[in-house]
Lab assay of single mutants.
Amino acid sequence: HNLTITQGKLFFHYNPKLCLSEIHKMEEVSGTKGRQERNDIALKTNGDQASCENELLKFSYIRTSFDKILLRWEPYWPPDFRDLLGFMLFYKEAPYQNVTEFDGQDACGSNSWTVVDIDPPLRSNDPKSQNHPGWLMRGLKPWTQYAIFVKTLVTFSDERRTYGAKSDIIYVQTDATNPSVPLDPISVSNSSSQIILKWKPPSDPNGNITHYLVFWERQAEDSELFELDYCLKGLKLPSRTWSPPFESEDSQKHNQSEYEDSAGECCSCPKTDSQILKELEESSFRKTFEDYLHNVVFVPRKTSSGTGAEDPRPSRKRRSLGDVGNVTVAVPTVAAFPNTSSTSVPTSPEEHRPFEKVVNKESLVISGLRHFTGYRIELQACNQDTPEERCSVAAYVSARTMPEAKADDIVGPVTHEIFENNVVHLMWQEPKEPNGLIVLYEVSYRRYGDEELHLCVSRKHFALERGCRLRGLSPGNYSVRIRATSLAGNGSWTEPTYFYVTDYLDVPSNIA
């Protein structure tokens, strides 16, 4: 807008934040220059609390790290170098490059900038070799853009010569660093050979998330399962459950009422301010606690030095998902009996873990797994792929695949051998790939016309006998059925096997 004052003059007093240069501009645009008398524009009460600059400061050096910015700028000295009290560095987070010096300023003089007072450097006698002032900004957020400017702080001049310097606002972004852990990993099994893994992005990506790394490792069953005799009275049979499938998407929606109208769909109840505040506090606490764990609990591995020492970490090797089922080394339970199943799973520490690289999504279907087997899954978020990966501390989750139908069934015939004193040795093959492992066998036998009897055969007993022995049988026709019990439950009964026990007292003698 054009402003013209045809008559009258300007009068400025007691404006401590208004620089004289701005008042002189007002004289020019209003056409009143030359009308004012000496005392109409006070030299001592206008701009006496402001830094009124008329020179431009330029930054000469900028260096960044993930949490620091090192700045240096060209030296500046007023005509009387004693008038320079120091520099004021202003900075704040700036997602967009549209910041002005006066953003967030209120009537009390406060604003949204963080201000650092910096002492002037030592003055050199040689004007050509003056030290460049600077400042190291610490405690910054990774991968965050900051708006920065600097200006001088000078003393009051009796001659009211307006001098000083100020830089333009520059924008500097800190470097990326390792992201925080992925949030809320959930693993479920939808079949006997697959596990579905879902997660949420890290709360602090500290860069642009480029991919996720998912490692999985087959877990050995508890050692007590191999040692305890679950045929003993009072000892509860062990059981394991597989990871249940995901709930429906509708039930997972946030901010939804727990109660549904019987007449149909209901609208979600909005969260109160107290609920939102509580969630923010919980989120802040979780982030602080995660940072504490990362800094205190997890110790970084030592990389190899120039002395030739090897990095103890196993090298990563990509495998196809079809090879995942046989990740671990199978060892027989008892070496003397080769027909026992290889369900003991000690994992070799030198073995390469299978892994998958996930790009542009937060889910993965891990296939080719062994049925009813526990897996430990390790999830890392990465925001750099080359020249070397920059990934987060791992988040861990466990899951067990679903049982395989008929995996616990005894394959092959049940054979028998009759000894003296009416002892019958029953023999059968253990299931080759049971659900988890076989903890015991149930032997059901009966003599024709009598009630059915049951015998429990422990895992250890089966390994020693290759089956079991029935003792003290009365003469007669017998039928026997056997079924295995694994961590997933009972298998199917075998087809009945028949044998006849004679009275050993009636056996004919070869003595003449």
Rank of each mutant, 00 (worst) to 15 (best):
L440F: 09
R390F: 06
P403S: 07
P354W: 11
R218I: 07
E350W: 02
E362Q: 13
V457H: 03
L228H: 01
E442M: 04
V365S: 08
C266G: 14
P238I: 04
D273S: 12
E417L: 10
A395V: 11
Y500P: 03
D291T: 06
S320V: 10
P475Y: 09
M402W: 09
R466V: 04
E310I: 03
I366H: 01
E282R: 09
P238G: 13
L470I: 11
S474E: 14
T288W: 10
P245W: 13
S262L: 09
T241G: 12
E417F: 06
T502I: 03
M402T: 06
T340M: 14
V359S: 10
C456V: 02
V329R: 06
V480P: 01
R466H: 12
D506M: 10
D503K: 15
L455M: 11
H371F: 14
E465D: 04
G472N: 09
P312N: 06
L440M: 05
A484S: 02
P238N: 10
A335K: 11
Y230M: 05
Q256H: 10
F285Y: 12
E389G: 04
D261S: 12
I438Y: 03
A488P: 02
E351Q: 03
Q256C: 08
R471T: 10
F355S: 09
R313M: 03
S315Y: 09
V296K: 13
R483H: 04
T494M: 08
R301E: 05
C266M: 05
W216D: 00
G472K: 14
K432L: 13
K460F: 07
F298I: 11
N435R: 01
F298D: 05
T288V: 13
A394G: 14
S474N: 09
G467N: 02
Y498H: 12
E404I: 04
S248L: 04
V334H: 13
N206K: 11
L293S: 04
V501I: 09
A336I: 08
W493C: 01
S268V: 10
I377C: 09
L437E: 06
E249C: 11
D503H: 02
A395F: 08
S474V: 10
Q380K: 05
M427F: 14
S392G: 01
T272G: 08
S268E: 10
A336Q: 02
N477G: 12
S344T: 13
V345Y: 12
N422T: 10
D408R: 00
L464K: 11
K271R: 11
R376W: 12
D450W: 10
G234F: 14
V393M: 08
I482T: 01
S315A: 06
A263V: 11
R353G: 15
D385A: 14
S344R: 14
Y292H: 05
E260I: 15
T333G: 12
H371C: 12
A463N: 13
P403L: 10
N383A: 09
H454T: 09
N383I: 04
R390Y: 02
H416I: 07
V443D: 01
N360L: 06
S320C: 08
A399N: 03
C266W: 14
G306S: 09
E417H: 02
K236D: 11
L487F: 05
I418H: 04
A336P: 11
Y498M: 10
A336T: 07
I438L: 08
E247Y: 13
P238L: 07
G325W: 14
Y375A: 01
R447H: 05
E465C: 07
R400L: 04
I377S: 03
P403G: 03
N421Y: 03
R318S: 12
V297G: 11
R447Q: 11
V393P: 01
R218E: 10
S284L: 09
V327W: 15
H425P: 01
S239R: 10
S248V: 07
N477D: 08
Y445C: 05
Q275T: 11
M427K: 15
N206F: 11
V414E: 01
E452P: 15
A407K: 04
E389V: 07
H371Y: 11
P270T: 06
Q429M: 15
R370V: 10
S274K: 06
F289K: 04
A263M: 12
P403Y: 07
S320K: 15
G325T: 12
D273Q: 13
W493V: 04
P238Q: 12
L453T: 09
K271H: 05
E265P: 05
K317V: 07
L280T: 15
R286W: 11
S203E: 13
V397Y: 10
Y500H: 11
L487A: 04
E351A: 10
D229R: 02
N208Y: 11
D385K: 14
E227F: 09
R483V: 01
V297F: 12
Y441I: 01
R481Q: 03
R466W: 03
H416Y: 15
V345M: 12
G476R: 00
Y441P: 00
E388F: 08
V365E: 11
G472D: 11
V439D: 05
E217P: 12
S492T: 08
I366M: 12
R318V: 14
R400Y: 05
V327A: 09
L237P: 08
E265W: 13
V359D: 01
D506E: 05
N435I: 00
V324C: 03
R400E: 09
V397S: 13
V480N: 02
S239A: 14
D323V: 07
L321W: 10
V329S: 09
S304L: 10
L505C: 07
P300V: 04
N477Q: 03
G322Q: 06
R286I: 03
T241C: 11
W493A: 00
P338V: 09
S239K: 15
D229F: 12
S239V: 05
Y259N: 12
N477W: 04
I276S: 08
S305G: 07
E227I: 11
V345H: 05
K406L: 08
P314R: 12
S274R: 12
I410R: 02
C456F: 02
S262T: 11
L232Y: 10
R319E: 15
R313I: 07
G472T: 06
L437I: 04
C391F: 01
P354L: 12
Q275M: 11
F289G: 04
P338Q: 12
A512T: 03
S251L: 12
F298G: 06
Y230E: 06
P332R: 05
V345G: 07
D409W: 06
A395Q: 14
T401N: 01
H425K: 07
G472M: 10
I209W: 03
I482M: 02
P338T: 10
D408G: 02
R313C: 14
S341G: 08
S315T: 13
